[in-house]
Design a binder for these strands. Structure first.
Length: 373
RNA sequence: GGAGGGAUAGCGAAGUGGUCAAACGCGGCAGACUGUAAAUCUGUUCCUUCGGGUUCCAUAGUUCAAAUCUAUGUCCCUCCA
């Protein structure tokens, strides 16, 4: 197994934005970075080669889904996620914590863990911090997450506090059973939008000495300003030399705002989901390729984009494919959207190197929310 | 030549006297989507100056009231000669 290492290179002059370097399997990846999501050990509609062509580095997979199907033991016996899905780049698994939030119904969260219904056959399941680590060690991603509770929005302060305290206890329990094998184990900062809760959570996690830290509890329907505060209140208390991961955030504007607040890595389903629903990210905002106005538009989605879809196909063709429900359409848009976010990160890294991330943000936002052309 | 069945919004298809501008599906148009129960979900789809106006093959009737009943016509389908 290859060991993933991280090194912080610099902090931008006018913000908390950081430039860093991940080395994995002899390959260097710069941060800040966007990570596509491959929940079921595949980035939907794409082959690993296509994912690589977008220059994405780390790919996510999901504990909950792979535990249920095909089973973490199967993945382990296959030689781990990398071998199983033929991806030799770095990988990260989520702990199943988000599934507690998105699909435990009715909510049955106890101190021991979370009771779920197996979505495929209705069986009662119990996911605990220990079980989550065990599964993730079987899956064998390079970065794994503590099992946390993601609090929705809105919420009471009382619940946010209670939940954060439990997330801390769960982090400790997970860390206690974690067997060092080269994987990096991250703790997850919760505490909603309350600075004292975020600060307490972050400090206690740092005390436990994780290999990196995630910011959780965002992208659950909160206003953007609140999301940015959640991040600020978390990164503020995290060590400089460890990776910081903002979970679930991928809106282009949010990637910029949170990079400025000191985040190194992001993941989000949006590029692939939007693609399947016919949307493309562009410099001028989201483009809905299903719209009739693109029927005879024989130009690429973005003429200055270097992705496979933009180099070879027109809006009219992709619109046709989406309309006809041909999977190739979703695939082309997924390639474009991932490449779009990866390129956005590339541009941000350049801006950080040149200490002009705030100017970059201003220009980007102006175009993104401005009138097209 | 004889017997029977049918014509409803872009298409398919319910409705068989009032609660019908007309269920539902498809198609069309648009919107949502942030650690993927999501190739999903939502809205809208006769015209309108939003008061209303004009519809259920056509025409003429019956009725307070017709997509629904009657007569005639037109077109389509099935079966028998």
């Amino acid at each position: 197994m290859w060991m993933l290492t991280f090194e912080k290179i610099k902090t931008e002059k006018n913000s908390q934005a950081r430039l860093g370097k991940i080395i994995y399997n002899g390959v260097e990846y710069e941060t800040p970075m966007f990570m596509p999501v491959g929940t079921q050990a595949t980035v939907k509609t794409l082959s690993p080669e296509e994912v690589k062509e977008t220059k994405a580095g780390i790919v996510l997979a999901n504990t909950y889904h792979l535990w249920l199907r095909p089973g973490d033991d199967v993945v382990r016996d296959a030689g781990g996620l990398h071998q199983f899905m033929n991806y030799d780049g770095p990988m990260l698994t989520d702990s199943g914590g988000f599934q507690v939030f998105s699909l435990a119904r009715p909510k049955d969260i106890t101190e021991e863990g979370v009771h779920f219904k197996n979505q495929y056959n209705g069986d009662s399941l119990l996911l605990t911090p220990e079980k989550s680590i065990e599964i993730q060690q079987n899956l064998g991603a390079d970065i794994i997450m503590s099992f946390d509770e993601c609090v929705g929005f809105p919420h009471t302060r009382e619940y946010a506090e209670k939940s954060m305290e439990r997330t801390l206890r769960w982090a400790k329990r997970g860390k206690d059973v974690f067997q060092k094998n080269g994987q990096l184990l991250f703790g997850i900062v919760q505490g909603a939008e309350f600075e004292d809760l975020r600060s307490k959570c972050a400090k206690e996690l740092v005390q436990m000495d994780f290999d990196g830290y995630s910011v959780g509890g965002t992208a659950v329907g909160e206003p953007k300003e609140i999301q940015y505060k959640m991040v600020e209140y978390s990164t503020k208390y995290l060590p400089e030399d460890k990776l910081r991961y903002l979970m679930g955030v991928g809106d282009p504007i949010d990637l910029i705002e949170n990079t400025i607040r000191g985040i190194d890595i992001f993941d989000c389903v949006s590029p692939t989901r939007l693609a399947r629903h016919g949307h493309a990210y562009t410099r001028y905002g989201k483009m809905n390729l299903k719209n009739a106005k693109y029927k005879r538009d024989f130009t690429p989605i973005e003429s200055d984009c270097d992705c496979y879809a933009c180099k070879h196909y027109t809006k009219a063709y992709i619109k046709h494919l989406i309309h006809a429900e041909e999977t190739f359409g979703a695939r082309l848009l997924s390639i474009h959207n991932i490449r779009y976010l990866v390129r956005l990160m590339e541009k941000m890294r350049e801006a950080i190197k040149e200490d002009r991330i705030l100017e970059f943000k201003e220009e980007f936002v102006r175009d993104y929310y401005g009138e097209e052309k």
